[in-house]
Structure formats: C-alpha cells, structure tokens
Amino acid sequence: MRRLVHFGSGALFGLGLLVSDMIDPARVLAFLDVAGGAWDPTLAFVMGGALIPMAVAWRVAAARARPAFGDRFPGPPSGGIDARLLGGAALFGAGWGLVGFCPGPALSALLVGGWPVAVFVAAMLAGMALHGWRLGRRGVAV
C-alpha cells in the first residue's frame, strides 16, 4: 500500500504540472522574467493552489498520531538558516533561471519533451551525484 501511495502521489504531481502547464519551461521563465513587459503570473497561481491543500494537510497531520500507512510524521525542520541552505538555494536558482527547469517539471517532461529535456535531466543527476560524492569524500553523513 505504501508503494501505491507513492506511485499515486507521483502521478498526480506530474499531472498537476501538465494541467498547470508548468511542465513547459518557457512558462516558468515568463514568470521569472518580472521586468520583461510580458510577465506571466501563472506560476503564482500554481503555488497558491498547491499551498492551500498542503497547509490543511499539515494541520491534519498535527492532530493525528501517525500517517495512514506509516510510523510517524516528519519532525520539525532541522538546522538553521545557514550558508549551506542559502548557497544551495542560490546555485539551484541560477540553474533554474538559465533554462526554466526545476527537478519536478524536468522529470515530468522527460518522455514528452525531446532530447533537450534528457540532456538537462542527465546533467541534473550528475550534479546530484557530484554533491553526494563530494560529501562522501569529506566523510560527512548525507
């Protein structure tokens, strides 16, 4: 059942990206292009539409002892606002701004977006692996 919930969540997530058209990096770039004169606010509606059910879900989770098919809910966010958090977010933002893909939309577009999406996803996986390798070499637990 856990596996089915994972699959269903991933499928619904991907379909939501398709319906909202955030699967298209041109729409994302049009949102990020705040000074461009043809600013496209759609991503803000997507974010708003996603935050509402999720905010309700956190309330429901707080009132429950455990998830339906699991042992416990995630604990409070660990760690503070440090250089690693902000540095990572800045690197991610730079890549996001270059082509308009973040991990979710890139993966949901993988089979329908042609070779440029495959190139991006391959580089993204390499970037993730590089981060893990670097931490592993420094002996830091990931």
Binding site: L91, F120, A123, L125, G127
Partner: peptide, 13 residues
C-alpha cells in the same frame, strides 16, 4: 550547466 547547478544546488540546499 543548468542541470549541474540544479542537481548540485538542490542537494546542497
């Protein structure tokens, strides 16, 4: 370049 930045940055952050 974008893929490497997104992959590395999201794991770091």
């Amino acid at each position: 370049a974008a893929g490497l930045l997104v992959g590395f940055g999201t794991r770091m952050g």
